[in-house]
């Protein structure tokens, strides 16, 4: 099994996540799209770790997961705070700091 296959899948997943961030306005779905992109990156790390037979790539996946957990927790807390203020999770409604 060639590593290229996993890289292709990861590329598609990353692009989908990227499109999701750009087209969706629901803050929760945007956060989910970011998780999708982080996952695609993790997959490439694991694929390269397998190709090079070094564990370093897997260590990186571990750290990316940590960052993803922190990001999700803070992001969702912001969504809850936003919802309290604006009664909506739409990012178009949070325009106060826009220039």
């Amino acid at each position: 099994m060639r590593v290229d296959f996993f890289l292709l899948i990861a590329g598609v997943l990353f692009s989908i996540g990227c499109i999701g961030v750009l087209i969706r306005r629901n803050a929760i779905v945007i956060l989910m799209s970011i998780e999708l992109m982080l996952n695609a990156v993790n997959l490439t790390f694991a694929a390269f770790a397998n190709e090079g037979q070094t564990m370093t790539g897997q260590v990186f996946v571990f750290f990316v997961m940590t960052v993803a957990a922190a990001e999700a927790a803070v992001g969702l807390a912001i969504v809850i705070a936003l919802f309290r203020r604006r009664k909506s999770t739409d990012v178009e409604d949070a325009t106060l700091l826009r220039w």
């Binding site: 940590t66 957990a69 922190a70 990001e71 927790a73 803070v74 807390a77 912001i78 705070a81």
Partner: peptide, 12 residues
Amino acid sequence: LVAAMIGAVLLA
């Protein structure tokens, strides 16, 4: 992680 946890609690 600790920072994120404190931040999340404060925000929410």
